[in-house]
Design a protein around this nucleic acid. Structure first.
Lengths: 133, 133
DNA sequence: ATACAACTTGAAGTTAACTTTAACTCAAGC
DNA sequence: GCTTGAGTTAAAGTTAACTTCAAGTTGTAT
């Protein structure tokens, strides 16, 4: 199966310029340039983009994602390094999730407070205090 | 209670330059400048920084955090807008958490795979395939 | 009185991850 | 043969959130 830049663009909700950019920085490799006219991608690019999106969600910067793919090319030599990177990233992701949860809790507390403000204004009753939660 | 820029810096693990920057963009307000010589912060700044850190963790950009504080100054007028912002942000945070979880799952799958690679290399046995997971 | 450390300022510089621009090429349809 | 539209390039521009810099000020210790 082969894909045009526009097909991949739609498939991954990434602008074509971003796909060209990823190729430029070496994150996508071996993209066929037909007649120096247009790019043709294959399944390997779809697979790689799936991982890239996945790592991006886990907040891994692009240069580390790239380093990861570089190490993977010689995994029998680099598996320890790879495991190390993956585990570090796992911990970071877990940390980030905890922070997000704490942030979410505060957001929801504020939402409860302003729901009370809403009611108070509508009933012409006194404004709630932060301690009423 | 009053605080120097260095005390706040340590308290929130933010460099002093960042505290000055927050003041410059209007995120921290009414900071006392004694004899145009040094800043003095008070409890209200500690409170606000707590919220700022909290919103930052929820991935709210600084200009929206600022807009939020601006609306809060007149909450009887703006409570609907505030509730709206908060709920939008709540949904975004939940989305981000889902993405992070999906990313984490993929990370952990890779970790399992490379643990198998590790064993295989140490036992001189054939490398695992991605489907062995 | 002078040196020094701590703090100040506005402005310029940094980083990551794109995005936009301008000028160009190619294949297909009229 | 000419236009159109999709694709190409290298290079410059953008954005957020800082960070660094150079030059100046202030209070305290010697």
């Amino acid at each position: 199966m082969s894909y045009t830049i526009n097909e991949l663009s739609k498939m991954f909700h990434l602008p074509a310029s971003t796909l060209r950019y990823y190729e430029k920085i070496g994150l996508l490799e071996n993209v066929e340039h037909v007649n120096s006219y247009h790019r043709v991608y294959n399944e390997s690019h779809v697979d790689r983009l799936n991982f890239i999106e996945c790592f991006k969600k886990a907040l891994l910067p692009l240069d580390e994602i790239k380093a990861f793919f570089t190490y993977e090319k010689d995994m029998v030599v680099n598996y320890e390094k790879i495991l190390d990177m993956l585990k570090t990233q796992e911990q970071k992701t877990i940390e980030t999730m905890k922070d997000l949860e704490a942030g979410l809790t505060q957001l929801q507390k504020k939402i409860r407070y302003y729901s009370l403000v809403n009611e108070a204004v509508k009933n012409n009753s006194p404004l709630p205090s932060w301690d009423d939660l």
